[in-house]
């Protein structure tokens, strides 16, 4: 019962974060006049269509103008342009929440649609693919090496790991990506410099899969390089901290073999904070994806964000800001649930 309440509380907070982002976005758009411009553009677009279709029927230009201006007033009321922007706020928030994200001016989905939701949804799997594979590889390496280091306290490698983590924290993924491209794509011509498919894409599902893999090597490696250092260090530190707990000595006193002490009494106990770090790392890399995908021209939501900035597509930018927040919030909620499963202490 209380467990449900705890989760509900967290869910509510996360939903609050989502709403906060939306309200902030809408307020900023409204106060800067962006939203008025946006809606005015929509109105003019509709009126232009109307004028064209009516031009045949109406001989008298005055009458035509009358009809048009009547329609303009109707539309202005419809879009709420007759009232100040803050009256439109609730409706706008609601629209975005229901994923009614509008249309893009120049950007098109691969299938040619100009609906923002199509654009975003089409890119979403690519981003998730990139980030999850990088996160999975990073965490496997991090867990393996971190645990290893924790058993070798005082060794050179163990002491060096803090420097490695500092370096890895300070290394921006996008710059690392640029370096990787220079070295592996242009100097040695080993790997493609960007994109997700060769042009033209190969035939057959297996060939296509291998092609994606081929293109993913550089971006995934880059993401792994820039995050694995702090991962190793974090795992090392958490495992070390746990291994100093009394119950670990108790387990040894019970005659439990060392590998089981490690798995059952150290790693298992350190798991909740490690999983926290894992998910927060994933959620954090979401923002970083905007940069990484840009560098590697990876057709995900991040690259779309960049293209939208370049072409000044407000509606796409708003939609993506919302989507990034949404995924982030979902990831954090998954974290809460996992935490509850992993740590009986919060399972009240």
């Amino acid at each position: 019962m209380t467990l449900v309440k705890t989760l509900a509380m967290r869910g509510l907070t996360l939903f609050g974060a989502l709403i906060a982002v939306l309200v902030l976005a809408v307020v900023v758009l409204g106060a800067t006049g962006f939203s008025d411009n946006l809606l005015n553009a929509i109105v003019s677009e509709e009126l232009r269509g109307l004028r064209q279709s009516l031009a045949q029927n109406f001989r008298d230009p005055v009458e035509l103008e009358n009809v048009i201006s009547l329609r303009r007033e109707e539309l202005r009321v419809f879009y709420g342009l007759d009232t100040p922007w803050y009256f439109r706020l609730p409706a706008m928030v609601l629209r975005v929440l229901t994923l009614d994200l509008g249309e893009a001016r120049t950007l098109r989905s691969f299938a040619g649609s100009n609906r923002v939701i199509d654009l975003v949804l089409e890119r979403l799997p690519n981003t998730i693919l990139l980030l999850t594979s990088a996160t999975v590889i990073t965490s496997i390496i991090g867990l393996y090496v971190g645990v290893k280091l924790a058993t070798q306290v005082g060794s050179k490698a163990e002491r060096g790991s803090s420097y490695l983590s500092a370096f890895s924290y300070a290394l921006p993924a996008w710059w690392m990506g640029v370096l990787m491209i220079i070295v592996f794509a242009f100097q040695f011509r080993l790997l493609p410099s960007g994109g997700m498919f060769s042009a033209p894409p190969p035939e057959g599902p297996l060939a296509r899969f291998l092609d994606v893999l081929w293109h993913a090597i550089l971006p995934v490696t880059t993401l792994v390089i820039v995050s694995v250092g702090s991962w190793i260090f974090t795992v090392r530190t958490m495992v070390l901290n746990t291994s100093q707990e009394d119950f670990v000595t108790v387990a040894r006193a019970k005659g439990i073999p060392e590998n089981k002490v490690m798995n059952r009494h150290i790693i298992r106990v350190a798991a909740p904070p490690i999983v926290t770090f894992l998910i927060l790392g994933f959620a954090g890399s979401l923002g970083g994806a905007i940069l990484t995908e840009t560098v590697f021209a990876w057709p995900g939501m991040g690259r779309l964000f960049y293209d939208a900035i370049l072409t000044g597509e407000e509606s796409v930018i708003i939609a993506l800001t919302f989507m990034f927040t949404l995924i982030y919030v979902i990831a954090r909620f998954i974290l809460e649930v996992l935490y509850v499963l992993l740590d009986p202490r919060v399972r009240y």
């Binding site: 974060a17 982002v21 902030l24 976005a25 923002g287 905007i290 964000f305 800001t321 927040t325 982030y328």
Partner: peptide, 11 residues
């Protein structure tokens, strides 16, 4: 609980 970079870019 708000992802910083996307919002920063937006603003």
């Amino acid at each position: 609980n708000i992802p910083l970079l996307p919002l920063l870019i937006f603003l």
